[in-house]
Computed example of a mutant assay.
Amino acid sequence: MSAGAKAGVQAPLIFLAALAAGISYVVSWAVPLPDWAAIAWKGAGVGLLATWASRQGTSADHRLLATVLVLGATADMVLEIHFIAGAAIFALGHVVAIALYLRNRRAGVGLKDVALGAAFVAGTVALAFALASPDWAPPVAFYTLFLAAMAACAMMSRFPLAAAGALLFVLSDLLIFARMGLIANVGWADLAVWATYFAGQALIAWGVAKALGGPGLDSGAARH
């Protein structure tokens, strides 16, 4: 079996392993584990998505996608050690994602789309500022500027599934900010945060890779 054929066989298995790791992570909350094991489990889902994405092609866009996911997995784990450092890594990932989406703008994007994107960014930043606790509101708003810009660029890209994933990512972070006060004592908050976040990352990975084309993906898109 050729290397390309092996990659085609292994790719779906890696994606399924990523889904299994990400979905099962919630089990770790009820299991007594060493800190390192819980942190590794948290990063495994998006880390495996990054591994899967890296096998989908060698173009600049494929590499950008893999980099976004590697930074996401790293941030997932660093957040458990140092919250600000983890958020900074996520912000860097958003910058890389913005570059990816701007390289792949959908046909027909015009000034109206840019204006709507700017309004989305402004509204999301304002909402994040309002949801966060007073002490955290300024840095939360600053971070959300990167997050919302990423989502706005995704919505103007040729990756509709990734755009849906980016919006879920935004929702997840808004829930985190609301958890600082508004829903601080709500039992479902932690599950909702993780579910929307991981679903968002999976949609971003699949949506971009499917459009770019890769092993095991039935895509009519031209490869770069």
Rank of each mutant, 00 (worst) to 15 (best):
L167F: 06
G165D: 10
W188T: 14
L145P: 05
S157N: 09
L191A: 15
L171S: 08
D135G: 15
A75E: 08
L191F: 15
L174A: 01
L167V: 14
M180W: 07
L71T: 01
H82G: 15
A137W: 09
A87D: 03
V114S: 03
G123N: 07
L147F: 09
F129W: 15
E80A: 13
R158D: 12
A148L: 05
A141N: 10
I89P: 01
K112L: 15
L131D: 00
F120Q: 00
T196I: 04
A184F: 13
L116V: 13
G86D: 02
F142A: 15
L131R: 04
L161E: 12
L102K: 01
G181D: 01
A118W: 05
S157D: 14
F90I: 07
A141E: 04
A164V: 15
L175M: 11
V95Q: 00
D135C: 08
K112E: 13
A132W: 04
Y101D: 07
H94G: 00
L171G: 08
W194I: 12
A151H: 01
A178C: 06
L145G: 14
D190C: 02
G110A: 09
R179V: 09
R158M: 13
W194Y: 12
S172D: 02
L191D: 11
L161Y: 11
F90R: 00
V170W: 03
H94W: 02
V78Y: 07
T124D: 00
W194M: 13
G86C: 03
F159E: 08
T144I: 05
N104L: 11
P160A: 13
A75C: 11
A164Q: 08
P134V: 08
L147W: 04
I84M: 10
V170Y: 01
F129N: 13
R103K: 03
T144H: 07
S172P: 07
P138R: 11
I183H: 10
W136T: 14
H94E: 02
L92M: 03
H82V: 12
E80Q: 10
A115Q: 07
A184P: 15
A137N: 14
H94C: 07
D135N: 10
T74S: 08
Y101V: 01
A189W: 11
V125K: 01
A88S: 14
L147H: 00
S133M: 13
D173G: 04
H94N: 06
G117W: 10
F83H: 12
A122R: 05
L191M: 14
F90D: 05
F83E: 15
P160K: 10
M180E: 12
A126L: 12
A152W: 00
A189G: 09
V96R: 01
D76V: 06
A166I: 07
N185Y: 12
A99P: 08
D135I: 14
A85F: 07
V186G: 00
I183V: 15
A73I: 04
V95R: 07
G187Q: 10
R179T: 06
M155L: 15
P139H: 13
A166N: 11
T196M: 03
R105A: 01
A119Q: 09
L175R: 07
Y143W: 13
A91W: 03
